[in-house]
């Protein structure tokens, strides 16, 4: 007996992502999902972002890592609420993990929830967590060929941060080639160049976030 089904296999996660988004909306919270390779500088960028916005904006962070709570400890030192999710080897966060993490915050007291995904340019791009915008961080030492190699990530992103630009003089990273490749995949994708070390671009990035706040 042949049974026609036509059922989205990942429907459960998509439904839960919508639940998360509605929950965040009901508290007027703006949420971003930051994705990158391991070592692109997500956590350092976050530390500096929190320093930059502290006082003005109430931020909470969800840290996704395979193992350890090292990143959560670093973010916790900045004085913001943080929940560590350990995926125990899993290569991405999914909406059910975010659902659990959100329950641990006092949402009424927040403006922004930042989700730092597991370092991986592949799987996280296909999972909707219930965030409002997806941000891909790419760092200069990784090379300018990444958009072509990981097209879905750049295609799905709402914003791209080119990080560690202070290293450009020491690298063969060709910014024009990079921008050209990104444009083919996502013509309207905004790119912000930053260095969390020298502070370049950080004010612009901070303002970008502030402009998104719904309160």
């Amino acid at each position: 007996m042949e049974i026609k089904v036509i059922k989205n296999i990942m429907q459960k996660y998509q439904d839960l992502a919508q639940v998360n988004r509605s929950l965040l909306d009901s508290y007027n919270i703006f949420s971003i999902n930051i994705m990158s390779s391991p070592g692109a500088g997500k956590t350092t960028l976050l530390e500096e972002t929190i320093s930059l916005l502290s006082g003005d904006v109430k931020i909470a962070v969800i840290e996704g890592d395979l193992m350890t709570s090292r990143d959560a400890e670093r973010i916790g030192k900045k004085g913001v609420p943080v929940v560590q999710i350990n995926t125990q080897g899993g290569c991405h966060l999914d909406s059910s993990m975010i659902d659990s993490a959100l329950k641990q915050f006092n949402l009424a007291d927040l403006d922004i929830v930042i989700i730092e995904n597991v370092g991986n340019l592949i799987c996280p791009s296909t999972y909707d967590l219930g965030e409002h915008e997806k941000i891909v961080v790419i760092s200069v030492p990784e090379g300018d060929d990444k958009p072509g190699k990981y097209p879905v990530m750049f295609q799905e992103a709402d914003l791209c941060i080119l990080n560690k630009v202070d290293l450009l003089p020491y690298s063969n990273f060709n910014v024009d080639n990079f921008l050209q490749d990104v444009k083919k995949l996502n013509p309207d994708l905004e790119i912000i160049k930053t260095s969390a070390v020298t502070g370049e671009g950080m004010d612009y990035w901070g303002q970008w976030l502030k402009n998104k706040i719904k309160k």
Binding site: E2, I3, V5, I6, N8, I9, M10
Partner: peptide, 20 residues
């Protein structure tokens, strides 16, 4: 030109099962 919109390629669904 570049990609304005992805029309297909992201779908993942169970089409049919055959059993008794």
């Amino acid at each position: 030109g570049g990609i304005k919109e992805v029309l297909s390629g992201k779908e993942l669904y169970l089409d049919f099962i055959d059993g008794e």
